[in-house]
Amino acid sequence: MRKSFLSGVLAAFATAAAAAAPLQVSALHPLMADLARQVGGDRVKVVDLVGEGGNPHRFEPRPDDLARMQASALVLAAGKGLEPYLNRLHDSLQGVRVVEVGSNIPSLTLTRDGDGAAGTPDPHWWHGVENMRRAARVVALALADKDPAGKVDFLANAQTYGARLELMQRWATSELAKVPRSQRKLVTAHNAFAYFAKEFDFTVIAVAGLNAEQNNTPQALAQTIEAVKLSGVKAIFPEYKANAKVLESIAAASATTLAAPLIADGNGSGQDAGFEAMFRHNVQSITQALAAR
């Protein structure tokens, strides 16, 4: 009798442990991984395939990444064309839902000519705080679809995260108010900050196009230098972990200061990892460089 009771208790615990196993979620972007952690909490195990500090523009899934995605309940992509391999991924993964988190977020259109991307959606939607609030709900509902018992938790977490983002948005508005109108121009390494610029009333002069690795012709660089001089802006922004040589040349030619780098693609490391850290870092860099003294 005692043996059968003990067996029953052990079996019950095994069943309970299996039922509480976290949902495995793979992410194709460090900030989608961050969203999954914020919203999923203990109910999810997040596999960040790009990795902290990795560049989602350069990521291409390898066979072991495909295996990890196949073992996941969900794959989160940023969407809006950032991941050109997504169609192939949909075909390759059997029974695994791929969620393009940014698909229903209103798009800005790339306008820069000469890089072949003009007229396509700008994929850097994560630079809008309001966009990230919307994305949190998208992720919550996607997780709930796979773990219905967790729906209340996921939505509550998304709401808590959203409240934190709202406070951060107010802080940013207050900080960036120190930048005078004449200086509300972001000269950046690549064309990644349009959503930020729209939300916080800046304009963007991007040196490179969609991707920091895109080459610039001498003519394009000359045009950029001229645009920077005409703008009257006092500082330009290189990019975190990117070669700043081109911007150094522009700064020298236009008599502007090279400011602290901005994190463009969620590829911060350590204390700069994740959306909130990236956003605070960028706001502080911009304010320090452009605020009236």
Binding site: M1, K3, S4, F5, L6, S7, G8, V9, A11, A12, T15, A16
Partner: peptide, 15 residues
């Protein structure tokens, strides 16, 4: 009643 199956069922029902 003495079998492991009965024990498991009883524990699960109680939980």
């Amino acid at each position: 009643l003495r079998s492991p199956l009965a024990g498991t069922a009883g524990v699960l029902a109680t939980l």
